[in-house]
Design a protein around this nucleic acid. Structure first.
Length: 114
DNA sequence: CCACTGACGAGTG
DNA sequence: GCACTCGCCAGTG
């Protein structure tokens, strides 16, 4: 079922543990496609409702939720879900990445399919 | 083919 | 902290 290269991103996001977050750029790097942060956001935006991918654990490099307030309310949902997982938001509304960013072992990088 | 957009990021002023 | 530019790349008209 390997469709587009988006599966690489989804695979990485699926490994982000509960109570932790990763940045778009980080996901891109771990997926073996550094500099493709924008594509990560594009990929997550294309996810269906029942996807099984913890998209809420992906935030921007400032520890802020990047979703545009397009009325869908998904930005609010993301914050609620993260709080429920134990992620705390700072005074400015940003997540202190120093404390909550996911730091996987080097070998957690998605190995290229041989 | 060109222009514009978008769940990004780093840099500059 | 805010505004703007550039780099990145897929999708759309």
């Amino acid at each position: 079922m390997s469709e587009g290269g988006y599966d690489r991103f989804y695979a990485v996001v699926r490994r982000i543990p509960r109570g932790r977050v990763a940045t778009y750029g980080q996901v891109a790097v771990l997926a073996g496609m550094p500099g493709q942060a924008r594509q990560v956001g594009y990929a997550l935006a294309a996810l269906p409702s029942d996807n099984g991918v913890p998209w809420q654990r992906v935030v921007n490099s400032q520890g802020r939720i990047s979703l545009r307030g397009d009325g869908s309310g998904h930005d609010l949902l993301q914050k609620v879900m993260l709080k429920r997982e134990g992620v705390r938001f700072g005074k400015t509304g940003a997540i202190p990445l120093a404390a909550f960013q996911w730091r996987p072992r080097i070998r957690a990088i998605v190995s290229r399919q041989s």
